[in-house]
């Protein structure tokens, strides 16, 4: 609002100044529109005063209530700032207290949340399109070893008549995987199926769509070095995951290049994405997305080196 605007006078439609004969057959109520009867004007209430009511009668004139209103606004802003400070202090308090438990989560000694979690998925099904093989599984299998052993069995659905070589390679690598250390086993059935590029994960009746969401599920369901929710850069990982999803879906090369640049920026000069010294879910997803969507010539030299590092994991 830029303050009062000059308005034209209109004919009065409702007359409120004539005395109204109220019916007496019903009980009376307190007039709720009148000024708060008997209530003290507290500062946190925007109360309606008589003065404000005649705002429409004023033309071309400095409104008397304005100063009051402004003062009130100032007051509210001040209160908000105070509240913000309070929250910040609470946040810093919490940060200090939450560091020790976080360490125990990341430590490699931790295994599954509870043994119950294992029973919860006796038969995990992943439906994947052979045109978009979920390479991330390969890396996830490697990185999760020691925590859980993902045991894959692969089926070919009748909607697929023959399997491309890339998918076959992934299949044999997943099936022939030999864990270095034994952990609890999770059986996963990978079904090659003629579906869209979205990989489907079926744990219960409702599928989880998309490869990155599959990884999100894995990192949440199994407490492992891949869990990222409680990390300080959790949101950044999430946004990288979203970019990976878009990379696979990108229709044009330019669209893809700009997305890849974002990933490149996140990598910077460090070993892994987001400046980490260990591979995270983001690396896994990005590796898979790049392998699916583009050839290695499309990516920058820096990203190329990182890509090779990813390949050496598995």
């Amino acid at each position: 609002m830029n303050g009062p605007i000059k308005m034209y006078q209109t004919r009065q439609i409702v007359r409120y100044d004539i005395p109204v004969e109220l019916p007496k057959c019903m009980y009376t109520l307190k007039n709720i529109h009148s000024t708060r009867n008997g209530m003290v004007d507290s500062s946190d209430h925007v109360s309606s005063s008589d003065k404000k009511l005649d705002i429409f009668d004023q033309n071309n004139h400095k409104i008397p209530g304005m100063a009051e209103l402004e003062a009130k606004q100032e007051e509210i802003l001040k209160q908000l700032a105070e509240l913000k400070n309070q929250i910040l202090s609470i946040k810093s308090d919490l940060n200090i207290s939450s560091v020790p438990p976080k360490k125990s989560i990341i430590s490699p000694t931790s295994t599954l949340c509870t043994p119950v979690a294992l029973d919860e998925f006796p038969d995990v099904i992943i439906n994947a399109s052979p045109m978009n093989p979920p390479y991330s599984l390969e890396l996830a299998q490697q990185l999760l070893q020691g925590v859980v052993t993902l045991i894959f069995s692969v089926h070919l659905h009748s909607t697929v008549s023959s399997l491309p070589d890339e998918a076959k390679k992934l299949e044999s690598s997943l099936v022939n995987f030999m864990p270095k250390s034994k952990g609890p086993e999770v059986k996963v059935r990978l079904i090659w199926k003629n579906i869209s590029s979205n990989t489907e994960l079926l744990v219960s009746h409702i599928p989880i769509l998309g490869e990155v969401n599959l990884l999100r599920y894995l990192s949440r369901a199994i407490k492992s070095p891949l869990s990222y929710e409680s990390e300080p850069d959790g949101t950044e990982i999430d946004s990288i995951l979203d970019i990976c999803y878009l990379v696979v879906r990108a229709k044009t090369k330019t669209e893809r290049t700009s997305l890849l640049q974002t990933i490149n920026k996140s990598l910077g000069k460090s070993q892994w994405l987001l400046g980490r010294d260990q591979a995270s879910v983001a690396d896994i997803a990005a590796y898979s997305a790049i392998r699916q969507a583009s050839n290695t010539s499309e990516i920058s030299a820096n990203l190329g080196k990182w890509f090779h590092r990813c390949e050496t994991i598995c």
């Binding site: 006796p122 089926h155 070919l156 659905h157 009748s158 909607t159 079904i191």
Partner: peptide
């Protein structure tokens, strides 16, 4: 609906 199948076929145990 067209007949669907998996290759290799799905094997379930009776307790499952």
């Amino acid at each position: 609906e067209p007949f669907t199948f998996l290759e290799p076929p799905l094997v379930l145990q009776y307790p499952q």
